[in-house]
Design a protein around this nucleic acid. Sequence first.
DNA 1: GTCTATACGACGATAGAC
DNA 2: GTCTATCGTCGTATAGAC
Lengths: 212, 212
Amino acid sequence: MKTKDHILAASLTLMNEEGETSVSSVDIANYLDISPGNLYYHFKGKDEIIPALFDLFEQEMQIILRSSPQDLTSIEDQWIVSYIVLEEIWDFRFFYRNLDGILSKYPILIPRFKRLLMAKRRTIHENIDQLVRLGVLRIENLLKDNLVEQILLIYTYWLNLRHLEDNSVSAKTAIHQSVFQIMTLCVPYMGKNGHAALKGMKRLLHANTVTK
Amino acid sequence: MKTKDHILAASLTLMNEEGETSVSSVDIANYLDISPGNLYYHFKGKDEIIPALFDLFEQEMQIILRSSPQDLTSIEDQWIVSYIVLEEIWDFRFFYRNLDGILSKYPILIPRFKRLLMAKRRTIHENIDQLVRLGVLRIENLLKDNLVEQILLIYTYWLNLRHLEDNSVSAKTAIHQSVFQIMTLCVPYMGKNGHAALKGMKRLLHANTVTK
DNA sequence: GTCTATACGACGATAGAC
DNA sequence: GTCTATCGTCGTATAGAC
């Protein structure tokens, strides 16, 4: 692993911990025990580091989102997609903690973030359609659009809200709760299977509460 | 209106427009055509301005949230509460745009914000209970908790998300869409009235899209 | 209450030696 | 590639005159 990679890894760690605005180039250099001059040799300040971190995030997220929903033949597979998406967001949570600030500070990222948002929306939509095809869900079109937007909202901000209410919440717990929230949103459209699903969720929730 | 009030009003305007982090004490002074020294006579920098703005927000929000849900005897009244809450949040949107950053920069606000969040949660809960009493909604307990959290998420972050996707979106449109999301979330629990409500919403949505 | 002037510190950024 | 040293900019904050 080269210095360049070390810088990226350290930046990600520090910014996830303390927020993008409170981490300066010097902080990153100190953390790595290198000089600010050295850091500037590799990246011309945060203006180059942030987009480089976004590259990593975008790349991995695109891989996740491109996995075809047709391959997901069970309802459990669908929840697993949510887990993976949320884990990826967790890994780059500094970004989501201050979306507005980061995008106006690094405008180059605006179109790229919007594209990612659209990709997420499309994937959610396709996954729900797949659940309909599998006979798991029955849902009217307008309500489906609403459900998609709500899941997108959960993806984007749920981890933030949990962190605000309890800043020591673990990744595992926060992500689990997000997925649970998504699953529960689907219950009304599961027909008579909804009740069984709901009971299963209650058990799951209980198990998670105890072990967390 | 005294200089002190002018400073608060200008701060709010500027920060809603450009974000808290990009507005300095000098910016505020320039905007008002007063000297930085004068500003510092009234407030010892942003460290005193931000909490003062939060005072205003907290005060108005508490009034809104304390209005008893028993007084809301029609379903329309409930949506109006949502409108009022969201308009208040819109007026202080700079705060919600970077919740994490502002709370870690002004930690004094953390317990106060958490209290406000709890108050919102309680009000939402009571309003849904009231809808149940009115016979408008039928909903199982676990699903009700889920619905409450989802509405809280909409209150807290929907305006942000809309702003990210379209930074020129008007207050009216963004707020209207938020309320529409909330209404739609309730449809599955409206029983046979759900379809009628849904049709009404579609008309409403169409009318709004055309006039926006 | 309001102004001018100025000091201080933090961060971003670069030059030049090794 | 990495270091030390240094500069410029900007935001915060205060002193003292009016």
